[in-house]
Amino acid sequence: MPLPFLTADSAFDAHEDTQLPLPHEDHDRWRRPYRPGPWRVAFGAVLLLVGSFMLLATMTVAFVGEAVGALICLGAASLVIGSALRLLRAGVWVSRAGLRRVSFLGTRTVAWQDLGEVRTVQQPVRWLGLPRTVQGQALTAATRSGGELPVLLTDHNADFLSRTEAFDRAADAVEAWAAEYRPAGAA
């Protein structure tokens, strides 16, 4: 079963050495311009493993004849599996319509014409999303009205920890999308 949210489009890999900032044919489809990092995939895999054991427990409880217990186990397993899928889907997504930041608990979409600037800055960033901060790079965006959006990407998050080249490529790709679709006076 293909899981399209786990992979970036292969067009980025195929055009990695060329100067094409946006190597996709269909710019209307939402896409993540980078591959999920090993930390995100590992956390998701562990949650899916726990969910599979919970489904096995659901089946065992159902065979014993406890319908209420089986429903409770099924609900808990569904919650764990849904959490794993949401964790794997989290990140920055782009399309011709705008920039979408998907977090674990919410999604925020900003149209390109409402976006003022997208840039990489040096600042304290959270390490793997934990409260501890370290000095690092962050891709930030601001709206035309001057409001700051939450940090889009950092070089210490679950996608880019110990992968600075991947962070640089992803930040460049998002900045290229912004340069392509933002109105000329928006910068």
Rank of each mutant, 00 (worst) to 15 (best):
L56F: 09
V41H: 03
W93Y: 15
R29V: 15
A142Q: 10
L161H: 04
V64K: 08
A45C: 11
A187K: 10
A166G: 03
A171C: 10
E180G: 05
D155K: 04
V174I: 10
S52A: 13
A187S: 14
I72M: 07
E16W: 00
T60W: 13
G146E: 02
L55W: 04
G69Y: 01
G116Q: 09
R32T: 09
P183G: 12
G129M: 09
V121E: 08
E25L: 14
D159I: 07
T140R: 04
L130M: 15
L71N: 00
Q135I: 06
G136V: 08
G51N: 07
S83D: 06
R169M: 11
D172A: 07
R144I: 10
C73Y: 00
A11S: 06
I81Y: 01
C73H: 00
F63R: 09
D26A: 13
D168E: 07
S145F: 00
D155L: 03
Q113G: 07
A67F: 01
D172M: 04
A62L: 11
V110D: 12
P124Y: 05
F160E: 09
R169L: 11
L139I: 09
F53P: 05
A62E: 10
R163K: 04
R32E: 13
T109K: 08
L74E: 02
E117G: 10
D155V: 03
A178Y: 01
A14T: 09
R35K: 13
P4W: 08
D114C: 04
D9R: 06
V134P: 06
V118Q: 07
A45Q: 13
H156V: 09
R108Q: 13
L130A: 15
G185D: 15
A84I: 14
A42N: 14
P150E: 02
D26P: 07
A62P: 05
D172C: 04
F104P: 06
A142K: 08
F43Y: 12
A111G: 13
L149T: 01
V61I: 12
A171I: 06
L153N: 06
A11E: 05
G65R: 09
A70N: 01
G136I: 09
V92S: 00
A158W: 00
F5S: 11
L115H: 04
F167D: 02
A90Q: 12
V92M: 05
F53R: 07
L128F: 15
G106I: 08
F12A: 02
L105H: 05
A57I: 10
D155T: 03
Q113E: 13
T60A: 10
T7Q: 05
P36S: 11
C73L: 03
L139T: 11
W30I: 15
A70P: 02
L87D: 04
P183E: 11
E66T: 07
Q123P: 11
P36H: 07
T18Y: 00
M1G: 14
G129K: 08
A76N: 00
W30M: 15
G136E: 11
W39A: 08
P38C: 09
G65F: 11
A176N: 01
F63G: 07
Q135C: 07
L56S: 14
V94R: 10
F53K: 01
S83A: 13
